[in-house]
């Protein structure tokens, strides 16, 4: 059974890691566009925005066995934002956990890939997200449990800035710091957009970095569409957080629709409508801007 080992899963140099992750992010974006076209809609904008975060985690950070998603020694990646499943499925396909051909069933009846991610449906999907504010609470329990069992795995929780509205996120943030869960890392996608509009107008969450620091976390804020910055942030966690039993959070400012100018410049919407004739334009724009990635 092949095991992918986390970062520096390899003797690769940092620039080589960045190249590998960027290639994967490019393919994840293409997968997301193809999946979106099947339904004619979907959370494509979020998937494009979060593709670099997802690629960095799956290419560079997680230890797992693609052919054995239930492998006990795996690191755990919990998708709290169920509607980001489209991006997560693309990352799971890129990781070899689900077949690329299956992606076209996204959101269809009887598919293993429902619109909102559920652990009972999809290999590699650890939890059923979607009711926001749950993921980090489960992550705290998993991290406590794994440590109690003397197991060395890390736990990652992907959440969105909208989820910072939920009180349970902060219950979990306090719990993680109290229990000194240095092997727990949260990734927050700050796309500044919620269902009813811009985050700043729905419920102000800033200053985000200071909040996490005040809760006892090792907090870094980076451009979430800059793979080099993501790699650097993740690399500092082992020394700054893991070694001292401090949970870590990587706060990622991302751009909805990133990589596809047509969508980047469209009026931002939680649930983006894309016309039939626009999907190919999106793919062409993504390819054109990719500097020859495959």
């Amino acid at each position: 059974m092949t095991t992918y080992t986390a970062s520096g899963r390899s003797p690769l140099r940092v620039d080589q890691r960045i190249e590998e992750i960027s290639d994967a992010a490019y393919r994840i974006r293409h997968h997301a566009l193809n999946m979106g076209e099947v339904q004619g809609q979907g959370y494509v904008g979020q998937a494009l925005g979060a593709a670099d975060m997802l690629a960095t985690v799956y290419c560079d950070q997680l230890t797992y066995q693609p052919g054995n998603p239930g492998w006990e020694e795996r690191d755990r990646f919990l998708l709290s934002t169920g509607h980001y499943a489209i991006g997560h499925y693309a990352a799971l396909a890129e990781a070899g956990i689900i077949p690329i051909e299956e992606l076209e069933t996204y959101g269809s009846d009887d598919s293993r890939l429902p619109m909102s991610g559920m652990s009972t449906y999809t290999p590699g999907m650890e939890i059923s997200g979607g009711s926001l504010g749950h993921g980090l609470t489960i992550a705290v329990g998993m991290a406590l449990s794994l440590r109690h069992q003397g197991r060395a795995q890390r736990v990652f929780n992907f959440l969105s800035d909208g989820e910072l509205d939920e009180g349970s996120t902060w219950e979990a943030a306090m719990g993680a710091a109290h229990h000194q869960l240095g092997h727990l890392t949260a990734l927050v996608d700050i796309n500044a957009l919620q269902a009813d509009g811009p985050t700043a107008g729905v419920l102000r969450t800033e200053p985000v970095t200071e909040k996490w620091e005040a809760f006892g976390w090792y907090a870094q804020r980076v451009d979430g569409n800059d793979v080099g910055a993501l790699v650097e942030a993740f690399d500092s966690i082992s020394e700054q957080a893991q070694a001292v039993g401090r949970p870590s959070v990587v706060l990622c400012d991302t751009k909805v629709g990133r990589g596809v100018p047509l969508l980047e410049n469209r009026e931002k919407a939680h649930f983006m409508r894309i016309e039939d004739n626009e999907w190919q334009i999106c793919r062409d724009q993504l390819s054109a801007g990719s500097q020859g990635r495959k």
Partner: peptide, 18 residues
């Protein structure tokens, strides 16, 4: 702690890990 949402989310995490 006095955090019931965390209590049950975390309990799920314990059960998920055996």
């Amino acid at each position: 702690g006095m955090a019931e949402q965390l209590l049950f989310g975390a309990a799920a995490g314990f059960a998920e890990t055996g």
